[in-house]
Each structure stands twice: as structure tokens, then as C-alpha cells.
Amino acid sequence: MRIDYHMHFENGSYNLEWVKGFFRHARQRNIDEIGIAEHSHGFIEFKELYNEELILDDSPIGTYQQQWLLKNKFRYSLKDYMDFMNSLKKQGYPVKTGIEVCNFKNQQRVAEILKEYNFDYIIGSVHFINSWGFDFSDLKFVWDEHSLRDIYDWYTAEIEGLCRAGLYDVLGHPFNLRLFKHIPTFDVQPFLNRVAIALSEAGMGIDVNTGTLYRYPINEISPYPAFMKTAKDYNIPIIFSSDAHRPEDCGRYIDLAEEYVKEYGYNEVLIFTERKAVAHRIGGKVISKAICL
């Protein structure tokens, strides 16, 4: 079975004409099932959390992030989203309902928001380090203000926080710290081990994400080989995703991602329904019983 479980409708709107393109490209790339994981910044319920989380002062970081929050954010309610996704399922579209939530400090408030809705899976992703959006290309200058070792340590601590929250099924795009080709010269294995241990203890999987292959300068699948090997060493399960933001990117390079993980000994992928995961053989049939993550 071939899946693509991390993509976003948000650059269009919740109408069938926009989303048909995602399903069309999925069919063209032999994707059996897609999963939509809208960013939490698309929903009004999360607005206050972003205002609390981000640097929003008059500094260059704050000024940019203020403007970012004004662009295509908080357009819908979670009810709008769930109603639309349920309508797609009723019409027979092969789709699962997920959400991608940022690494907010106030995880108790996140839990209160999420408990009202029946997702198939929930992705937790680190998008902020010390309230700075490290993946914003316009804020790349901030990287030069800190040591890369410190950034890796902070990033790892953020993942550990997501894992401790007990809310998430999957970690999004692990170690996408490499997006802009900031490649460490120090030993990163202690950080990789910390993340793998935290994921294992939380019962979470990881997102094998091709978006970093075609959308960023690093041009590689996340997680990169060193963490892919570490994840396998700790028996961390996986999903596949294109991180598509446009219909034409749905399913992009999933075939390459499947071959990539096989190099590290993976032959199963998780399929989610109502927060339960079933392991399927990559490209094959169900081979193990449902597991709760």
C-alpha cells in the first residue's frame, strides 16, 4: 500500500474543485490513500497560542513573524475542517484526517483544543526554536547568531517536549534543521539518540518527508541518513509524505522515499484510522494487528 500522509489544502479552500487535483495526482503516482494534515495556524482555535509563542516585537524577527501571521492564517475553524473532511470520506475519497501542530510551550491548551475532534492521526512538528521560526528563509540570518551545536540541543529539547506531551502519533520532518545546508561538524549522534529514545518512549512514529527534497536547498529526504539509521536501530515506525502544498506535488517522490527506507531495513509503513495504526508492508497487504500509538 502506498500512502502520502502529510499535505495541506490550505493554499486553496475547502471546496471539491480545489481538492480534486490532489486526488488526481495521487492516482497518477499510484498513491492508494492520502492524509491531510493541515497546519494548526490555519485554525482560529490556535491563534492565541501563536501570539503567545512567537517573537512578535519590533525586532527584525518579530516584524517578519507579525507579517507571517497575517498571511492566510486562521481562516477556518476546526469544525469547518472536520465537516469538509468527513464529507470527502462519505463521498468515497481515499483520505484520512490529520493535523500538524507546532511545538507550543502550552501543550495543556493544545490538548484542550484537540480533544474535541476525532482525528485519524496527529503530527507534532518543531517549527520554532526559542520563538524563532528557523525554517523561514527570510530569517536565515538568525542562524549566524548562535552556535549550531546549541541549535541542535534546543531543537532536540523541543522534540522531547512534544513527546512528553503524549498528544502526538508522528514527529513531522525529523531533523529538517539541515534545510539551508547548515551541516554540523560535531558529533550529532547524542542528539539523534535523545530524539529516538523520546519517540520510542512516547510510542510515536516519524514522517519520512520528501518536501525537503524538492522545496529546500538541502535537496534530501527527511530524516537524513544518520537519523534514518538511528530510527531503525530503535524500531521507530514510519509514515510517508510529500508535504505537498499544491495539488501537483501530491505523491511527489514517494516512490523514492520507499526505496530510501528499505536501505535501512524498513519494510512496513503505518496506516492510521481514528488514532490507531496498522502496519502494512510497503507496497503490500496488512501484515500485523492494529497498534495504538
Rank of each mutant, 00 (worst) to 15 (best):
D4V: 09
H6P: 11
F9D: 09
G12A: 07
G12C: 07
L16V: 15
L16D: 15
E17H: 13
A26R: 04
Q28A: 14
I34V: 14
I36C: 12
S40E: 02
S40C: 14
G42C: 15
F43N: 12
K47T: 11
E53D: 12
D57V: 13
T63R: 05
Q66A: 06
Q67R: 06
L70N: 14
N72I: 04
S77R: 04
M85D: 07
L88V: 10
Y93I: 04
P94I: 04
V95T: 09
V95Y: 02
G98V: 00
G98K: 01
I99M: 05
Q107E: 08
Q108Y: 01
E112V: 08
L114C: 08
K115E: 14
N118L: 07
D120C: 09
Y121G: 11
F128V: 09
S131T: 11
D135R: 03
D135I: 06
K140L: 07
F141G: 13
V142N: 00
D144Q: 02
D150W: 00
Y152T: 10
T156Y: 02
I159L: 03
I159S: 08
G161Q: 14
L162C: 14
C163H: 05
R164A: 15
A165E: 04
L167E: 02
P174N: 12
N176S: 13
I183S: 06
I183H: 10
D187V: 03
P190L: 01
P190E: 07
F191M: 07
A202F: 03
G205K: 00
T210W: 02
G211A: 15
L213I: 00
Y216D: 13
E220G: 13
P223S: 08
Y224S: 10
P225C: 08
K229W: 05
I236L: 05
I236D: 04
I236C: 10
F240D: 15
F240Q: 09
R246G: 08
E248S: 11
E248D: 13
C250K: 01
Y253F: 10
Y253V: 03
D255A: 12
A257M: 03
Y260N: 10
L270W: 00
I271A: 07
R275A: 11
A277F: 02
A277C: 11
V278D: 12
A279P: 15
K285L: 08
V286T: 10
A290M: 08
I291T: 12
